[in-house]
Amino acid sequence: MEHLRFEFKTPGNRPSGRASALVGVVSSGNLEVMVESTDLNEACQVEVNTSARGFAAIWQAVLTDFAERHDLAGLRISINDGGATPAVVSLRLDQAIEEFLGMSS
C-alpha cells in the first residue's frame, strides 16, 4: 500500500454542496472517491490510499488537472484505489464533484 497526500491552494469559491458524496467501488482497476466539506478555506486536500506503489508523480499530474478543471476550495477528497488507470481516476473525480454539487440525477 502507498499513502499519498496532496494539497492544492485554489482561489476558487467554497462550493455549497452536500456534506459529503461517495462514488465508485474499490475493485481491480477501480476506485472510490469521497468528497467532504472542510473548514480549510483556500485548500483542497487529497488523500490517496493505493495498492499500486510508485505512481506518486502520475497522481500529482491527474490531481493537478482535476484541481485546475474545477477550481474548488474547502474540500477534503479521500481516495481508496484498487489500481485504477489515470483516465478512470479523472472520470471518478469529476463524477464525485457532480454528485457532491447535486448535479447528478
Binding site: 500500500m1 459529503s20 461517495l22 472510490e32 469521497m34 495498492s51 479521500s78 481508496n80
Partner: peptide, 22 residues
C-alpha cells in the same frame, strides 16, 4: 455508520490491500 465515519477493516491494511470506507 456511513463512509465518512471511516469504519474500515483493521486487517486489510496489514496485508497491503486497499480498504473501502464502508
Amino acid at each position: 455508520l456511513g463512509p465518512t465515519e471511516r469504519l474500515t477493516s483493521p486487517h486489510l491494511e496489514l496485508l497491503g490491500l486497499p480498504c473501502a470506507f464502508d
